[in-house]
């Protein structure tokens, strides 16, 4: 099947109410409505989800892992943002 002129969609599935939608994969479709139906047929054949999001892959703006060193650099030298940085005596350590 020729998929060249079909849009690529990323599929996100919410497994249960209360949980975040989680990325499960992608598929080609003519439009969003068709993508939803395909996603239902491809990714939720065994009641894996209660809600599906489809997003056009080209609409996703992603950070590059190759740049992660400089991208995340500002938080690398801030260990004091972590609770474990603060040493408290045993008697009061349950906060």
């Amino acid at each position: 099947m020729a998929t060249d002129n079909l849009e690529l969609y990323e599929v996100f599935v919410r497994a249960r109410r209360g949980l975040d939608h989680k990325h499960v994969g992608s598929l080609h479709a003519q439009d969003a409505e068709q993508a939803l139906e395909y996603a239902r047929d491809c990714y939720t054949r065994r009641s894996e989800g209660v809600s599906i999001w489809v997003v056009r892959s080209r609409d996703i703006c992603a950070s590059q892992e190759d740049d992660s060193e400089s991208f995340y650099d500002p938080s690398d030298d801030k260990p004091y943002r972590h609770a474990t940085y603060y040493q408290l005596p045993e008697a009061v350590n349950n906060m």
């Binding site: 004091y80 943002r81 972590h82 609770a83 940085y85 603060y86 040493q87 408290l88 009061v92 906060m95």
Partner: peptide
Amino acid sequence: ESFHQRQGYELMI
């Protein structure tokens, strides 16, 4: 939030 309380208590100590 845990960091917030712990830094405050550490300061109080």
